[in-house]
Simulated assay, not measured.
Amino acid sequence: MSQPTTLAGLTPREAIADAMYRCVIGLDTADLPLFESAWSKDSPVLFDMGTGAMHGLEDIKSKLYNFIAPLDTHHNCSNVRIDAKPGAKTAYLTAYSIAQHHRAGEGVDTSTKHLTSGAQYFLDVVEDGDRVWRIKEWRMTVMWLDGDASIVGR
Rank of each mutant, 00 (worst) to 15 (best):
D48H: 08
L145R: 13
L123G: 04
A15K: 06
S43T: 15
S117W: 01
E36P: 04
C23R: 14
M140R: 12
L93D: 02
Y121S: 01
T51N: 06
E58S: 11
S43V: 15
T73P: 12
S37L: 07
G153H: 06
G153C: 08
R13E: 15
R154A: 13
G9S: 09
S43A: 14
L34C: 01
N76P: 15
L7R: 09
E14P: 08
L46N: 05
D59E: 03
G52P: 02
L7C: 07
M54C: 02
A30N: 14
A91Q: 01
G147Q: 04
D128E: 01
Q3I: 08
V132E: 05
V126N: 00
G105Y: 00
H55C: 11
D28I: 04
F122S: 09
Y92S: 15
K136P: 00
D148I: 03
D124E: 02
S117C: 05
F47H: 06
C77S: 10
K63C: 07
A99N: 00
A69C: 11
G26A: 03
D72V: 14
L46Q: 03
N66F: 12
A15F: 07
G87P: 07
L32D: 14
D72R: 08
V45H: 06
I135D: 00
R103N: 10
E127A: 02
A104R: 03
V152L: 09
E14L: 13
I135P: 00
A88Q: 09
Y65E: 08
H55L: 13
R13Y: 10
T29K: 13
D42R: 01
G129S: 01
E36K: 09
H102W: 07
K63L: 06
W39L: 04
W39T: 02
C77P: 13
G147E: 07
E137W: 11
W138F: 15
